[in-house]
Amino acid sequence: MVNLPDEVGDPTKGMTSIVKTIVRFVLGIVIMFGAYIVLYGHLTPGGGFAGGVILACGYITLTLAFGRELALRKMGDTAASILDNSGALAFLVIGFLGFTGGYFFLNFIDHGQTFRLFSAGIIPLCNIAIAFKVTSSLFAIFMALSIFGRFMSRLVEEEE
């Protein structure tokens, strides 16, 4: 069960306590599954994007159940932006490192033994970089839409 701060129990924020309790149980599993999809991307179906989407879904579940404030405390907009840019930059750096072998995006690391976790050269590293980028981008988009949605509904209320 995921340990969340006390004020999370505040019944005025987020959904009912049934949902909150279930999210406490599920959240850890969702994030673990996302990490698994990312790390085993080169061996099984999935990869950086798919795993990143699952990780972002974890954050979105948290937001839906406990309200926006808590989710923003876990990953604020500045943090999301930094993570987003560094993920993309890391991916590009891996590409640049290929120049050491003569080609952009050359798989320069030893490919290892097939079907082992530590194999396939740069591909797992690329997956991890992409996962950071996708998680933070999707979370940022979700937050932007939710803030925009509230702004619009306030605008409609004022007009009424």
């Binding site: 932006s81 930094i82 840019n85 993309a88 930059l89 590009l92 590409g95 640049f96």
Partner: peptide, 13 residues
């Protein structure tokens, strides 16, 4: 393509 992409992210950081 790599330079402008890198500059995008470095600039934002």
């Amino acid at each position: 393509t790599a330079i402008p992409l890198a500059a995008t992210f470095i600039g934002l950081l």
